[in-house]
Amino acid sequence: MALTTYSPIDSDWPCQVRTPGSRDWERSASKWLRELVPARYGSYPLLVRQPVLLARHAQIQLQHEIRVVRTALHTARAELPATGMPESVIEHTIKMYAAELAQLHHIARGVRVVMRALLDEGSARHGH
């Protein structure tokens, strides 16, 4: 069964999401995905009822967040000194952005494996 490849033991599988095939796993996936998108999107009934759409939106949202943080990281050393910020603050800012970038990449990998599991579940349910 293909679903056995998705496991909370997988380093990319989010701990907030139950194992596929377990009771309420899709609901736990939707709940986690809603936390990744701006709150107003989590209130759209269509996105709440269709976890694959929600996962797709979360993927797009994360791609944009990654671009924003990457830009902030790459421009910090050149632009922040002009603000009069002390070098130590600039260094901490760069470390913060680097850590955030790593975290966003980890979350994006989690969204990808959850999306794959949701798609597999949908295919199994529809006999594909």
Rank of each mutant, 00 (worst) to 15 (best):
V111M: 02
V89S: 11
G127S: 14
Y41H: 12
V89Q: 10
G122K: 08
L33K: 05
V37I: 12
G122A: 12
R112A: 15
L73M: 09
E100F: 01
T75E: 11
T93Q: 04
L36W: 02
A29H: 03
S28E: 00
R112S: 13
H105R: 12
L80I: 03
V111A: 01
V48T: 10
A39T: 13
M1A: 15
A98S: 15
M1I: 10
L104G: 03
I66A: 02
P45V: 02
R125G: 08
L47D: 07
D12W: 01
G127R: 13
G84A: 07
H64Y: 14
Y41F: 14
M85Y: 06
V48D: 06
M96E: 13
R34H: 06
A55F: 05
A76D: 05
M115I: 00
Q16N: 01
V89K: 10
A117Q: 05
A39Y: 09
A72T: 07
E26F: 02
P51E: 08
R125H: 12
A2C: 07
R109A: 10
L119D: 05
Y97I: 00
T71Y: 07
G122R: 11
R56D: 12
D24F: 11
A39S: 15
E65C: 06
R70I: 00
A117V: 03
A98R: 13
I107K: 02
R56P: 00
A39Q: 13
Y6R: 07
I60H: 05
A58Y: 03
M1S: 15
L118N: 05
Q50E: 14
R40I: 13
T75K: 08
Q50L: 06
I60R: 09
V37K: 06
V111I: 14
H92S: 14
M1V: 14
A124F: 09
H74A: 11
A2I: 11
L3W: 07
K31E: 12
T93P: 00
Q50Y: 08
L104R: 14
E87F: 04
H57R: 15
S43N: 09
I9W: 00
V111P: 01
A76L: 06
P20M: 13
H105A: 02
L62Y: 05
T93K: 04
W25E: 13
I90N: 03
H126I: 10
I60K: 08
H92Q: 14
P81F: 09
Q103V: 01
E35W: 06
A102S: 10
D120M: 07
Y6S: 04
D24T: 03
